[in-house]
Amino acid sequence: MNPHLFTGFIGLSVAMLSIGAVGVLVRRNPLVVFMSIELMLNAANLALVTYGRFTHTMDGQVFALVVIAVAASEVVVGLALITGVFRRGRRLDLDDLSELRE
């Protein structure tokens, strides 16, 4: 494989991570924030697999598999939390959740 593609993969991974981070920072809808987090996890997976491929190890893929499992668990619990919180008449807006201030 063309070694210069390595930089391409890593660049795409970092770009996706940054985009996801911006999404977490600027979006108010908790579902979108959540999807941005998924995006960041995917970016990390891409980096892991890329490094594994170029160093000829399986560790990256195993790690990515574990990350996918963790992400799945996180989605299940997180979505349950979101529905739990917002089922009772709250707007879907994270800025409504500012109890930390008090």
Binding site: E38, V49, G52, I68
Partner: peptide, 25 residues
């Protein structure tokens, strides 16, 4: 992932993520 010779992960990506997780979303 396929390009990176990670066929199994590509399959998992489609099945678990695009399939299960995103449907849940």
């Amino acid at each position: 992932f396929l390009l990176l010779d990670a066929q199994f992960l590509a399959a998992v990506q489609v099945i678990v993520y695009t399939g299960a997780v995103m449907v849940l979303f």
